[in-house]
């Protein structure tokens, strides 16, 4: 360690540039910076090892195959065209389950990243985030977004290739691809921000992690059509943004629905996204205020 050259740029002027800039505002630009920083952090975390290709691609594919083989004996039964027309065609059944797997990968990757984020409380870096002037919402949204993009791109590409090969996609209008993309991405990011905020202040993050794994695929209709689920499970599933996302994705890609037909679902999904974001803001406010009062980075 040397103390040479300290004066050159550490104290270039009486008041450093960033102090003045902070006072001048510039919130959006700072938010963009936090986004980029979180994206790098997630990239290093996710790609710390080459084995990540397992969790990104191999696991969801194996899971998809096992699900397909498990459900197939039910679909290849007489009268299936009346009960569930889509399942009468094995390729469309596979596409249905594949969309479920894709959606689940989107939303569960955020559960995972939130779980990892909760470890920052243990390692002490969470305190450093709160020490900094960076916007808290920007941090949790950026963290979720970074995790999402890096966790799902490979599987998403694979799924696009699969759908092309199966030739099962029939959209009402090319713009529906954009609708599908946004219907997956936007609620997922809000979901990620909400979970990040919740989990960093949660005493038992392992419990929430478990709670959002199996119940989520079950209630959101990842492996079964919603009509197969009892009403009370559908009610529970309706608060999960994955349910709405999947309804839009399947409606647009597999059933050729138009934006008009999907409008109610899209509106519900939008409302849920807003609620999740507000929930994230509230959890962050309460959590930080509680930490400032008790010295413990815990909300409950």
């Amino acid at each position: 360690m040397t103390d040479r050259c300290l004066a050159c740029s550490l104290t270039p002027e009486a008041e450093p540039v960033e102090h003045r800039r902070a006072q001048a505002g510039g919130g959006l630009r700072h938010t963009a910076k936090v986004f980029r920083a979180e994206a790098l952090k997630q990239h290093r975390r996710v790609f710390g090892s080459r084995l990540v290709v397992f969790s990104m691609l191999v696991w969801p594919l194996m899971q998809l195959a096992a699900t397909y083989y498990t459900v197939r004996p039910l679909a290849a039964t007489p009268g299936i065209a009346g009960r569930w027309p889509l399942a009468a065609d094995p390729e469309r059944l596979l596409a249905f389950l594949a969309t479920g797997a894709l959606g689940f990968t989107f939303f569960f990757s955020l559960v995972q990243s939130a779980w990892h984020f909760s470890f920052e409380r243990v390692t002490g870096t969470l305190e450093l985030l709160f020490l900094s002037p960076a916007g808290r919402l920007a941090i949790v949204v950026g963290n979720g977004f970074g995790a999402l993009v890096q966790n799902v791109w490979l599987f998403a590409c694979f799924m696009v290739a699969l759908f092309t090969a199966l030739d099962v996609v029939h959209v009402a209008h090319p713009a529906m691809y954009a609708v599908v993309f946004l219907a997956l991405l936007v609620p997922a990011v809000a979901w990620g921000a909400f979970l990040n905020s919740l989990l960093i202040f949660s005493r038992d993050s392992a419990f929430l992690y478990t709670l959002l794994d199996d119940p989520m695929w079950f209630a959101a209709g990842v492996r079964l059509p919603l009509f197969a689920l009892p009403v009370w499970i559908r009610v529970f599933g309706s608060v999960l943004p994955l349910t709405g996302s999947l309804a839009v994705v399947r409606g647009a890609l597999l059933d050729g629905r138009t934006i008009g037909e999907l409008a109610p679902t899209l509106l519900g999904l939008g409302a849920l996204t807003v609620l999740l974001t507000l929930g994230a803001v509230a959890a962050l406010r309460l959590g930080e205020a509680n930490a400032q009062r008790t010295g413990r980075l815990r909300l409950f």
């Binding site: 050159c8 740029s9 550490l10 270039p12 450093p16 540039v17 960033e18 800039r21 902070a22 510039g26 630009r29 700072h30 910076k33 936090v34 980029r36 920083a37 790098l40 952090k41 450093l128 985030l129 900094s132 002037p133 960076a134 941090i139």
Partner: peptide
């Protein structure tokens, strides 16, 4: 250091040399 520089909104031109 770059990561924390972003959290503190340190201008790019200053951050590298710093």
């Amino acid at each position: 250091l770059w990561y924390f520089g972003q959290l503190y909104d340190v201008p790019r031109a200053v951050l590298g040399p710093r």
